[in-house]
Design a binder for these strands. Structure first.
Lengths: 110, 110
DNA sequence: GGTTTAATATTGGACATCCAATACATTTAT
DNA sequence: ATAAATGTATTGGATGTCCAATATTAAACC
């Protein structure tokens, strides 16, 4: 379907991390199933996470009570819980505080 | 010494990752020793990485040829190599492309 | 019904990142 | 000279994130 442009993953240093955070952020936009989440991540981070990446992460978020799920036939719709929503807010604050300078610099440069 | 304010690490989701990337970015500002790098990370990410975190990361960056070091008495000064500089550029591009939306949203909200 | 397809899910192995604990070298203080 | 302080470094164990491989389930197709 969509062949939308996506960033090239750099070879120089490891860019893993923040997956659960990113999933929470995506779910704050709208409830999604696993494949939709994976596709969003592909568009944004340049590589589509496989099933072995995405479902364990979702399971952990559910265990922590941050995400709720509802099975609908073949698919499972994941959505933010109230705790997930509150947690995301704190996490966004932290993320932008921790990495803000790097973004600022990029904005100036372009 | 400096008790500068630093962000509170959220409990909701894991915020590890991007350490090597962040180190490269810091070293692009100026050469530093391990303790200075750790202190910069504390101010920005809210927790000071211990020796077991920082030195293996620096060692790996050196193995990859991205970082150079020079021993000076008690301290070791680390600096970006040419490859490190080029790699960082790509990595910054990727990082901002991958996480830009989250940051944009934060800017609007505040 | 029987096959294919799409989505979900688990397992096992690899690796980066994290800490606590330990060790060592060099400078500084006594 | 000895002790304390500072900076560097390694080890071992935990955890999150990553993929390939495999399995399961439900819908769609013939």
């Amino acid at each position: 379907m969509s062949e939308e442009c996506c960033p090239e993953v750099p070879s120089c240093c490891d860019m893993r991390g923040m997956l659960s955070f990113y999933i929470l952020w995506l779910l704050s936009k709208r409830p999604m199933n696993g494949q939709e989440i994976s596709e969003e991540l592909r568009k944004r981070r340049g590589a589509k996470p496989t099933a072995g990446t995405i479902y364990p992460a979702l399971k952990e978020l559910r265990t922590k009570g941050l995400v709720e799920m509802e099975r609908k036939g073949r698919t499972t719709i994941y959505s933010l819980s109230e705790d997930g929503s509150k947690g995301l807010e704190k996490a966004c604050e932290y993320f932008c505080s921790a990495f803000g300078d790097i973004f600022q610099e990029y904005r100036k440069a372009t």
